[in-house]
Every structure is written in C-alpha cells, then in structure tokens.
C-alpha cells in the first residue's frame, strides 16, 4: 500500500446532542480516487466540513501528510493543499469567472503575484473548458458551468487532496459525462480525490475504493462492487426488510 495522505482517527463532530460524524477512522492513500457514499443525512458533507476545519472535530485526530490539522483554521488547511467543492455552489457572484479562480490561485495556490495568479487561473479555466466565459460575471453561468467553476477554483489552489461534494448533482447525463472526464484527467495529473456522490453510476465508474457512512458512522469500506453488495450497506440504503429479502433470496 502506498503512503497515507490523509488519516482520520476516531473523528467525531457533535452539534449539541447530535453526533453528525461519529468516530470515523479511515485513511486515504496518495493518488487514489475514493468514493464516499451514504444515504441522505449520513454526515458526508459534515465530514468534509470537519476535515476542512469549517466545523472542527469535537473529538479524534485528523492528520494530513503527517501533520496534525485537527485544530487548524480553514484558510490554513486550504493553504496546505486540501481543496473542496461545495454541493451548493458558492461563487463570488459579482466577480468574473476569471477573478473567482484567481482567488484560489492567489490565496491557497501560492501564486507570488496577481499576474501569476491570473495566468494560473486561466490555465485552470482552459482545463475545465470555461476559458470562453472568463470575463463573464459568475452569476451569469448555468448550473453545469458553475459546478465546473467550483472545480476550476479548487484546482487553482494546487490541491494534493481534492474533495468533490456532489459535483454532478442536478446535471443531465451528457453534462455528467463531461464532468467525469474532467475528474479522470485531474486524477491522471496526480491529485488524490475524494468523491462524494449520490449517483452510483458515477461512483462506480471512477472510484477505486468506497467508504460508506450511515448515521455518521463508517459502516463499510473496500472495493466498490463488494461494498455495494454487503448487507449492512443495503440495509442502510433500503431498510432492513429489503435487506432480509435479498439475503433470504440469496441464501
């Protein structure tokens, strides 16, 4: 096994009495594409928020490239090379597409000057196919374009780990194919990727490994096909009666 890039040890995040993330221990290897799935409300987005420091862990430890980042502020974590996209896209609406991406290159991507940051941003826009829209205000983009803008922004941060939170939600199937192509190309450039996804098709087609969250707990981990056919996962998604029936039918 290759060296671990990100390690979570017993990570917990409480909101009042609710444990949104409950004792998650997992490690992500350098260069892998890993899928994170789970039913609605399983705590997937919260887990990403916890890793990125938006909602810091209330217990446990998060180690990124050998460095404990559990208590670090979001902007510091971003600067270390941990980027994420938002499920609900969060552009700076009044800025142009180029300016949006420039922000990522300038503040987390280590670009020394404004000019260098703009050049780096332009490269990312070409990579994601948004170059033609560079000077438009971000608020004028379509949903699919905004999702790609999120990608371009996080790529401009020169991430070592990229966490994609439902980048395909709300897209039609040809748009999904485009997005998948971009994800594969990002992976080919050596970036480790965590994909949070609802669409099984997407998860299966890109992930080398899958982890499953349910009620904030990690309930399964491993090779995609095997994980999806495990009873615990089926029960989490479809309820216990359905799981029994499948188990009964198989046995």
């Amino acid at each position: 096994m290759r060296g671990a890039l990100l390690e979570l040890e017993g990570v917990e995040r409480r909101f009042g009495g609710l444990k949104a993330v409950d004792g998650v221990t997992v490690s992500i290897a350098r260069g892998e594409i890993i899928g994170l799935i789970g039913p609605n409300g399983a705590g997937k987005t919260t887990l990403i928020n916890t890793i990125t420091g938006v909602h810091p862990a209330t217990a446990g430890r998060i180690v990124f490239e050998g460095r404990d980042i559990t208590r670090l502020k979001p902007h510091v974590i971003a600067g270390l090379g941990l980027a994420r996209t938002f499920q609900i896209v969060q552009p700076f609406p009044a800025m142009t597409v180029l300016e949006n991406v420039t922000a990522g290159a300038l503040f987390a991507g280590g670009a020394p000057t404004m000019k260098a940051a703009q050049e780096a941003a332009m490269e990312r826009l070409e990579f994601t196919g948004l170059a033609a829209h560079a000077s438009k205000p971000a608020s004028t983009l379509t949903l699919a374009q905004r999702k790609r803008l999120e990608l371009a922004k996080s790529l401009a941060m020169k991430p070592r780990l990229l966490m994609l939170d439902e980048v395909n939600a709300g897209l039609n199937s040809s748009e999904v194919d485009d997005a998948l192509d971009i994800i594969r190309r990002i992976a080919a450039s050596g970036v480790t990727i965590l994909v949070v996804e609802h669409l099984m098709k997407v998860v299966l087609s890109v992930s080398q490994r899958i982890i499953v969250l349910h009620h904030g707990q990690l309930i399964a981990e491993g090779e995609p096909k095997a994980v999806l056919s495990s009873p615990a996962v089926i029960e989490a998604y479809l309820g216990s009666r359905y799981a029994d029936r499948i188990a009964g039918g198989a046995g």
Binding site: P74, H75, F86
Partner: peptide
C-alpha cells in the same frame, strides 16, 4: 461576497 467560501479558498 462570501466569507465562508473565501476561507475555504485560503483567504485568512
């Protein structure tokens, strides 16, 4: 425009 998104992009 969006303070939370700015932090995530590395803005202190």
């Amino acid at each position: 425009q969006n303070e939370d998104a700015a932090s995530i992009l590395g803005v202190n």
